[in-house]
Amino acid sequence: MKGKIIYELNRLLKRSRNFASKPIDKETLKKILDAGTYAPYGLNPPQPWKFIGILGNKALSISRKLDSNSSCVVLCFSPKVKDYYNQLTNFGSTFASIYNMVLQAISYGITYDIVFQVNEELKESIYRDFNIKNEEYILSAIVFFGYSAQKVEPKQAQRNVIWRIE
């Protein structure tokens, strides 16, 4: 039964940049961020990520620059490390936690989108506005959250083979 519930929520994963005007409250955003902190982090305790949740006009000003109308934005940073494999592990942990956040959001009827790369100008303004040190953190992703402007239809599992059992 539990498996079926999570499976059905996964079917509702649907990227969107066009959200309804209903705002996400701070308590809900906090729960979404809390879910993100329970991802695996391997050799990098304390957790190898830093998240900044933004609500309201400040969020809108960022999302509008990225063709979205979300008023709830999460900036996701991974710490910079010298070792290549450790850096990959940090990125992996950051995106594992983004999945947690997205799944938690869906349970509230909230949809999402992820931007993986932003232009230098926007990146610089984010580092400046939120006092992030460029030499310490990499902006890995920006996640938009919002209530969907239209009904989200569950996805169908495509059963063409992308996996095999040995």
Partner: peptide, 14 residues
Amino acid sequence: WNVSWIIAQAIMIQ
């Protein structure tokens, strides 16, 4: 790589 780790976490949660 990053999308693969979204998948990895989805597998682990499922």
